[in-house]
C-alpha cells in the first residue's frame, strides 16, 4: 500500500443556480482518501456532505448545479473534467455508491435477479473482451454476490421482488449490486439511516467485513457520529459547505479541534453513560445564498474573534489532524489578535 491518495478532492466549489439566487453549497472542500482507508464525512443537514459524495460520481445534475472550481482526482484523473462517457466506465467498476433508502434505488417491477444481472452485464462493456461474462455467468456472479453479503437463500431471492424483502435485506442487495463490478472505492451515503439499530449493526459489520474481502476503500457519509466512529478510521467534519476538521477517529473524539466539532460532541447524548447535561449549538446555519465573509461558523461560535472574518485554512494541529479555525493558527500569525 502506498500513501498516494486514491481519491483527492481539492478546493472543490459548487453552486446551485436557483430561483432565489446563487446557493453556495460547497465552498472549498479539501480531503484525501488513502487506499484501504475508511473515511467518514459527518455533518448536519445542509452541510454539503451528500452533494460532495454525489459530485465524485458526477451525479449532481448540472444545471442547476455548477462547478466553480477545484478538482476531484481519482488515481490522478480529474473526475470533474473527464466527461460523461468516462464517468460511466468508472461507475460501478471503479467507484460504486449505495444510498440511504434502498427501496427507491430498486425498481419495483423487476426481480432482484434481473436488476443484479443487468448491472453486471452493463459492466462487461468496459472489460477486456476475453474476460466478459455472458448472461448465465452473470447470473452465477449475482448469486455469488448475494451470498457474499450474507443474504439467506441467494438463489431463491433472485426471483424475489424488492417489496418482498425487508429494509435490511434490500440494503444487502444494493451492496451486492454496488460491489458486483469489483470497485475499489465504495461511497455509502447514509446507508443505515432508514434502518433499525439491530439491522444497522448488521450492515455496518457487513461493510467492515467486505472492506477486507474486496480490498475496498470506503467513504461513509453520515449524520450519526456513532456510526462513523464504529466503521471509520478517519473523519472529515463538514459545516455549511466547508471542511472544518479532518482527523483520525481517536483524535477527533478525544481532542476535537474545531469549536463546531466540540459543540457537536457535546450535543450527542451518549447511550453508554448515565444522563449528563447536553448542550445544543445555539443559532442556525448561515444563509448560503449570502454566506458571511470568512469562517462560516463564526455567528454561532463562542470563540469568535476579529480574525474570523478571513477564511481559516486547514491548520495542521497534530497526528494528521487538520482544523479550519484560527484558534489553531501558529502563534506568529495570531500575534496581536488574541
Amino acid at each position: 500500500m502506498t500513501d498516494q491518495p486514491l481519491l483527492s478532492v481539492r478546493d472543490f466549489r459548487l453552486e446551485f443556480d436557483t430561483f432565489d439566487g446563487v446557493y453556495r453549497a460547497i465552498d472549498g472542500v479539501n480531503f484525501d482518501l488513502i487506499p484501504g482507508e475508511s473515511l467518514g464525512i459527518v455533518g448536519e443537514t445542509g452541510c454539503g456532505k451528500s452533494v460532495t459524495a454525489k459530485s465524485i460520481l458526477g451525479l449532481v445534475p448540472t444545471p442547476p448545479a455548477r462547478v466553480v472550481s477545484g478538482q476531484i482526482l481519482y488515481n490522478g484523473e480529474d473526475l470533474l473534467t473527464v466527461g460523461e462517457e468516462r464517468l460511466r466506465a468508472l461507475r460501478g467498476v471503479e467507484i460504486a455508491m449505495i444510498f440511504q433508502d434502498p427501496m427507491t434505488y430498486l425498481n419495483p417491477v423487476f426481480t432482484i435477479g434481473q436488476q443484479l444481472v443487468d448491472v453486471i452485464l452493463a459492466h462487461q462493456r468496459w472489460r477486456p473482451s476475453e474476460q466478459r461474462l455472458n448472461r448465465a455467468q452473470a447470473r452465477d456472479h449475482a448469486i455469488d454476490m448475494l451470498s457474499r453479503v450474507h443474504l439467506p437463500n441467494p438463489e431463491r431471492q433472485l426471483d424475489a421482488y424488492p417489496h418482498q424483502l425487508s429494509g435490511g435485506m434490500r440494503q444487502r442487495v444494493l451492496i451486492a449490486q454496488a460491489l458486483s463490478g469489483n470497485p475499489r472505492l465504495l461511497i455509502a451515503d447514509e446507508p443505515t439511516t432508514a434502518l433499525d439499530v439491530t439491522i444497522q449493526a448488521q450492515i455496518l459489520d457487513l461493510i467492515a467485513e467486505l472492506m477486507g474481502e474486496f480490498d475496498l476503500s470506503v467513504i461513509l457519509i453520515s449524520h450519526d457520529l456513532g456510526v462513523v466512529a464504529s466503521l471509520c478510521q478517519r473523519v472529515v467534519v463538514m459545516y455549511a459547505g466547508q471542511v472544518v476538521e479532518d482527523a483520525s477517529v481517536t483524535r477527533l473524539f478525544s481532542e476535537p479541534g474545531h469549536p463546531y466539532t466540540q459543540g457537536l460532541l457535546k450535543a450527542v447524548p451518549h447511550p453508554g453513560r448515565a444522563a449528563s447535561t447536553l448542550s445544543g449549538i445555539p443559532g442556525t446555519l448561515p444563509n448560503l445564498y449570502d454566506p458571511p465573509a470568512g469562517c462560516r461558523f463564526q455567528s454561532r461560535c463562542a470563540h469568535a474573534m476579529p480574525m474570523c472574518t478571513t477564511v481559516p485554512p486547514l491548520y495542521a494541529v497534530a497526528d494528521g489532524q487538520r482544523v479550519a479555525c484560527h484558534l489553531h493558527a501558529p502563534e506568529a500569525s495570531r500575534a496581536g489578535v488574541a
Binding site: T198, A201, D224, L225, V227, A229, S254, H270, P271
Partner: peptide, 11 residues
C-alpha cells in the same frame, strides 16, 4: 442486543 447494537459516539 439492542443496547450493544447502538454505536457509541467515541473512538
Amino acid at each position: 442486543a439492542l443496547l450493544s447494537a447502538v454505536p457509541w459516539p467515541e473512538a
